[in-house]
Design a protein around this nucleic acid. Structure first.
Lengths: 138, 138
DNA sequence: TTATATAAGTAGAAACTTTATTCTTTGCAT
DNA sequence: ATGCAAAGAATAAAGTTTCTACTTATATAA
């Protein structure tokens, strides 16, 4: 499958803006719409921020990208096929850590068993204090 | 302890606006800044939205209120002493459910043991699909 | 292959939310 | 009562998302 066909396979038109947005998401990982726009402007200076928002939305609808909430400010976007970890946001140093998704497996299972709730634990970050900051507070 | 002293005990001045914001947070629960401003305006019409934001911030700093991210839209605020559950946000029907905090106890413990990360699981909602919507999809 | 129709996409602006700044007012210690 | 520092109001600025009118990619047909 040629790269330039994956968009059309999803029923989407092939525009330079759209290709560049998708490429930027894949390259940057955990990027905000603003950061993605900045990246795209390196090769396509005229692109409008609203185009980035709209395309992120579109690409998310067809399942190529996903967003997660890392706290204040915008959501961040990543390619759908690399979303295999959960995010740990430190409220003190604001660093975003990662943990394998199966660290939450039991939690997810119990929410399903006890409440019938099918959780997507990658969508929201887990907020708290990282090891370094916890140590520094003592 | 008299109610009108709890703010001063925290080193804060006692202003009508501040009292009303705190009262509104306690009464409304899970309210956005905008909703809180609306509530305060019932008895204090002139209050500025920025005053609400600033006071929510101040009250949070002294530990009287807390905010959580429920996804779409603004953060929501609640009195710190009633934050004893986690939020389950359904991405389909957008209803916000609750689960006791100890449903996440093992998960929180394992993040602490394995990564040294002290999580506050109430700060971000858990995203997913509620039982009703999951059933409806079949 | 080229022209044309139209549905999808883009740019720009507007709407909305949150934060910062400046100046005025007010709570409260002395 | 008076002065000082904290808080409020107003406004602007920054940041995020949505809306609208114009443009373009693509399918179809000559």
């Amino acid at each position: 499958m040629a790269a330039q066909h994956e968009l059309r396979d999803k029923g989407l038109r092939l525009t330079p803006q759209r290709e560049l947005v998708l490429a930027a998401v894949r390259e940057l990982d955990h990027a905000t719409p603003e950061q993605i726009a900045e990246k795209v402007r390196e090769t396509h200076p005229g692109i409008n921020l609203s185009t980035v928002y709209r395309n992120l939305d579109t690409l998310e609808n067809v399942g190529l990208v996903q967003h997660s909430h890392m706290g204040h400010g915008s959501a961040t976007y990543q390619a759908a096929d690399v979303v295999n970890h959960l995010h740990l946001v430190c409220g003190t140093c604001e660093i975003v850590g990662e943990a394998p998704i199966n660290a939450a497996a039991n939690f997810v299972d119990s929410l399903l068993d006890d409440y019938g709730f099918k959780s997507d634990i990658t969508h929201f970050a887990v907020y708290g204090t990282c090891a370094d900051c916890a140590k520094a507070e003592l």
